[in-house]
Design a protein around this nucleic acid. Structure first.
Length: 464
RNA sequence: GGCGGCGUGGCCGAGUGGUUUAGGCAAGGGCCUGCAAAGCCCUGUACCCGGGUUCGAUUCCCGGCGCCGCCUCCA
């Protein structure tokens, strides 16, 4: 079974299902602008986790929220003179479009903060009733001092956190670390009625309400980007603790994307949006780039690296094409014979290597390394005229890639238009006549039209 | 200042106390090919510096240097 590193306990352990279901809650986007590659990595990492668990036969319930009311959305609405809902809707549409481009499966549930305000109001009332929260002129705050073990995810105690120079006291707070559960209504801002005064929810409140509502108490895993570890997840946990409700059993954080060793972020201006990425690279290249690294390590992402990974993806497609051609010949004349048995054994060994790597804290880098070994072996078998063995081993490798969301396809199956096909026929004829000059001229013309020429026993093959 | 992490061969990026290599891409040589492409084979004295532990450390411990993240919104 899969063992995963848990940020809270700082060790790897197995995911624990609740009533037979693995509930995954992953903090999704605040919809105020175009998603960038960093957001994409988060989505890919948890998509890979979800796909792999399902591949392993687990029942998974994947929930990921959309924060559609927030300071940044309001700021932008003000700056652009447009309704805040319009900003959110537009940004959310861009998000799902990017997710679809990346082949990220849609989570089973996509709760929106604005749909759960009522629940958040109840939660705040509950916390006030328990004396864990207090009212201030500008809203309601949670008193961090009332929470046992505050700082668990940050791995620092209250004193150490207080010592942080960058924590400043704000208007109504009793302690600098206290955080807003509810922000009092201001003119021109969205607000909802509440017994403790109209206003809007603080960021940390929604995830508590939505995760518990959709997954129940003691759900399996709570995930997000590494930068959400503190204060966001710490503060979510603080609320659950103050409520006395069992919360996430496992905390998982995906590593940040870097450029030149620095975090990709808007303020540094070093970000690549997912829309740009899709335009200039094969989205599968990004998935492969993510898979080649440890999910919780920082990862360098540049157009050059995407291009490089793209060439590796092409190699996978190339194999898919070779296997498609080999399949008819692979029908074993002796089913169950020694040849087939050894091919199956090799394929099983490959899948076992893949699985044991994945089970080891989602070691996708090790898993991918194993699969590329399988790719090379399959190509070797094809060169050695063993189509059955190649199909068994190579097919299994590509299936495993597909299990983590990296689909391959026969690059030769796409039929070029008639003009290009005519050139290919002309080239084959010239080659048959040993007229190399004419053959090379035809090839040059084909390439000028954007197709690549490869020779095969059956003549010219074309791919993009 | 506190906490956490990183420093691996041209680049990205795993991993491990020592027997056989992560893997990808790039580079060089070879096989195949009319040539090329694709594929395969081979090659490059990799583990920041200084101590320590050890029969043996890239891998553990201590110190140093450099870099990064979080401590404020952030995937």
């Amino acid at each position: 079974m899969l063992r995963l590193y848990d940020t809270a306990s700082e060790r790897a352990h197995e995911l624990v299902p609740s009533s037979g279901v693995l509930g995954l809650y992953v903090c999704g986007p605040t919809v105020y602008g175009p998603p960038h590659v960093g957001h994409g990595r988060l989505a890919l990492v948890f998509d890979v986790l979800r796909r792999y668990l399902e591949h392993r036969g687990e029942t998974v319930r994947h929930v990921s929220n959309v924060t559609d009311v927030d300071d940044k959305i309001i700021d932008r609405s003000r700056a652009e003179g447009r309704p805040w809902q319009a900003i959110a809707e537009e940004a959310e549409a861009a998000w799902w479009s990017a997710m679809s481009d990346l082949s990220v499966l849609r989570p089973h549930e996509v709760p929106h903060a604005t749909s759960y305000v009522e629940g958040m109001v109840e939660l705040v009332e509950d916390l006030l009733g328990r004396g864990a929260a207090y009212r201030a002129p500008d809203g309601v705050y949670l008193s961090v001092a009332a929470v046992d073990g505050y700082g668990l995810l940050a791995h620092q105690d209250l004193e150490a956190l207080r010592a942080g120079e960058r924590v400043h006291a704000e208007a109504g707070k009793r302690s600098p670390l206290d955080f807003a559960l509810w922000k009092a209504a201001k003119a021109g801002e969205p607000s909802w009625p509440a017994p403790f005064g109209a206003g809007r929810p603080g960021w940390h409140t929604e995830c508590v309400v939505m995760s518990l509502a959709l997954l129940g108490e003691a759900f399996s895993l709570h995930g997000g980007g590494y930068d959400l570890r503190f204060p966001h997840h710490e503060n979510e946990r603080a609320q659950a603790v103050a409520l006395g409700r069992p919360f996430a059993r496992h905390w998982v954080h995906s590593g940040l994307v870097e450029v030149g060793g620095q975090k990709m972020s808007k303020s540094l201006g070093n970000y690549l949006t997912l829309a740009d990425l899709v335009e200039r690279a094969d989205p599968r290249a990004y998935r492969l780039l993510v898979l080649r690294a440890k999910y919780r390590s920082p990862l360098e992402v540049t157009p050059e690296l995407l291009g490089e990974a793209g060439r590796a993806v092409e190699r996978l497609d190339e194999l898919a094409g070779r296997l498609a051609t080999a399949r008819p010949a692979a029908a074993d004349p002796d089913p169950g014979g020694p040849g087939e048995r050894s091919a199956t054994t090799a394929a099983d060994a490959l899948a076992a290597r893949f699985q044991s790597a994945m089970d080891d804290d989602l070691d996708t880098a090790g898993a991918v390394a194993a699969l590329f070994d399988g790719v090379r072996e399959a190509n070797r078998l094809l060169d050695a005229a063993d189509p059955a063995g190649a199909v068994a081993v190579g097919g299994r490798a590509l299936e495993c890639f597909s299990a983590v969301g990296l689909a391959t396809s026969d690059p030769f199956s796409q039929a070029p238009d008639e003009a290009v096909q005519a050139l290919a026929r002309r080239r084959d004829a010239a080659r048959a006549a040993r007229d190399w000059a004419a053959a090379d001229a035809a090839r040059a013309e084909i390439e000028a039209l954007g197709w690549r020429v490869e020779d095969s026993p059956s003549g010219t093959r074309l791919r993009r």
